[in-house]
């Protein structure tokens, strides 16, 4: 199979293309040189120390994390309710409603951002943190709906019907049966919403109030001059958080699932 080994080599090359640049950032974060690029002069943690002493970056981190958590609460709440309706009920116009729920993805983010700003301008309201929160939630909503819907389809209704026939009320059934079964979906949706908000830059640049920076817009601002070595250290921290967290969560979930069996 010569063709197959070509396919394999090609795929390895593409994976390298996807990960080599990221690996370089991770590597350069520990470079002691005062310039951000090559050559590597030695191992040092000084840029991490500088990073944690940089108040602007720390404030941006705080903003991003707060915004991400609040966004994931809003988007997940709306998304779960909507997904329940889509999966559990039959009603006229369902396809149309689904398209509408997915529509924020189909609108280019730049246009979405400008549209919301113009609406706000019409209402004579200034940019605010609330705008960022609502905006991020609406951007994350379609993804939450897609992820949660995919998980919900797998939950059998028999359990709920059994609980109902054993005398549980609808609310009790939801709390005791549906919600625990739903939790992985809730968790997946919330995590997705958090990463979307934490990563967003396109719309955030338009929406942020004067003086408020999220981590991506802070990096964007810092790039105006040149790539400072602190950015590499910041990149390292961000990658460890946004990749490490879901991986650990997923790994733990698997571990516990296996132990229970």
């Amino acid at each position: 199979m010569r063709a197959w080994s070509w396919i394999r080599a090609y795929s390895v090359a593409v994976y390298l293309f996807m990960f080599a640049p990221v690996a370089v950032v991770l590597l350069l974060a520990f470079n002691s040189s005062q310039f951000s690029g090559f050559p590597i002069e030695g191992f040092s943690l000084r840029w991490f120390r500088r990073l944690f002493e940089n108040e602007a970056i720390m404030r941006a981190f705080e903003t991003s994390i707060t915004l991400g958590l609040l966004t994931s609460v809003c988007a997940t709440t709306l998304g779960i309710l909507a997904s329940l309706a889509l999966v559990r009920y039959r009603f006229p116009g369902k396809d149309w409603i689904t398209t509408l729920l997915i529509s924020p993805v189909l609108v280019p983010e730049t246009v979405l951002a400008v549209g919301l700003l113009i609406f706000l301008r019409y209402l004579s309201m200034p940019r605010s943190f609330l705008l960022l929160l609502l905006g991020h939630s609406i951007i994350a909503l379609p993804f939450v709906v897609l992820v949660v819907q995919a998980r919900l389809v797998g939950i059998r209704r028999d359990y709920e019907e059994a609980a109902r026939s054993l005398g549980a009320g609808p609310f009790e059934t939801f709390l005791q049966i549906t919600l625990p079964l739903l939790l992985p979906a809730v968790f997946a949706g919330a995590l997705f919403a958090f990463t979307i908000s934490f990563d967003n830059i396109t719309a955030t640049i338009f929406w942020r109030p004067a003086g408020v920076e999220t981590v991506p817009t802070q990096i964007f601002g810092m790039l105006r001059n040149s790539v400072s070595p602190e950015i590499n250290a910041l990149g390292f921290v961000m990658i460890v958080v946004t990749v490490g967290l879901p991986l650990t969560a997923g790994g733990l979930a698997r571990y516990f699932a296996r132990r229970r069996q």
Binding site: P21, V22, V24, V25, L28, S36, G37, F38, F198, D199, I201, V215, P216, I219, F220, L223, V227, I231, N232, G235, M238, I239, T242, V243
Partner: peptide
Amino acid sequence: ISFIIRTLSWIH
């Protein structure tokens, strides 16, 4: 992985 980090990584 952060979009902006992936983008700027090409400078490196």
